[in-house]
């Protein structure tokens, strides 16, 4: 054992592996403590976003049928109880970071986007505030025409794909 420890190559491998294992354990413990809180916070953000993209006093009901046939970015589809429209919650990964971009899209009775909000996004700072508003009024026919933002092309394309998927999902469940 002492011979192995004195060999610089073995020692380097053992020390680096041990540090990686300890750090992984630390991350696992932190994840255990924070995962539920993060999930709850994101759920609250989605609920708040639903009210913002399609304001209503009637509340929403989740559509659970036919979700398998929908694009895979679609996480859930809600129908406004007063039949004013739909809200689609999506998660897309077509961007640089591994974290999800979570998008909530409100679609009115006429099939056009009436509200959009990004609830989780950790890249370009100002992208989430202004750019999504360009999709207001977009329909399945016109969504492709919304331009990307130079310098944020991956995120723009991901958002465009998400809105397109939301419109497709609503057409499917109607």
């Amino acid at each position: 054992m002492k011979k192995i420890w004195n060999d610089p190559v073995y020692k380097s491998v053992i020390v680096l592996t041990a540090i990686c294992l300890v750090v992984s354990a630390l991350l696992a413990v932190t994840n255990l403590a924070t995962a539920l809180v993060i999930e709850r916070t994101q759920q609250q953000a989605v609920e708040q976003a639903m009210q913002e993209v399609l304001p209503t006093k009637n509340g929403f009901e989740e559509i659970t049928d036919s979700l398998k046939a929908l694009p895979e970015t679609v996480q859930s589809v809600y129908r406004e109880k007063g039949d004013a429209g739909y809200v689609v919650s999506l998660a897309t990964r077509s961007q640089y970071s591994s974290a999800d971009m979570l998008v909530t899209v409100g679609i009115g009775k006429d099939g056009a986007v009436c509200g959009i909000r990004i609830t989780n996004y950790a890249e370009s700072k100002d992208f989430g505030a202004q750019y999504p508003q360009q999709y207001l009024g977009a329909t399945a026919q016109t969504v492709q025409a919304v331009d990307s933002v130079a310098g944020v092309t991956y995120s723009s394309a991901a958002l465009n794909g998400a809105v397109k998927d939301a419109l497709t999902a609503v057409q499917e469940v109607q």
């Binding site: 932190t30 924070t34 993060i38 916070t41 950790a122 890249e123």
Partner: peptide
């Protein structure tokens, strides 16, 4: 992770 869980507004504004 701690900021994401307990100070989400700061987590969002600091971003990448």
């Amino acid at each position: 992770m701690l900021l994401h869980a307990f100070v989400p507004s700061l987590y969002d504004s600091l971003g990448v």
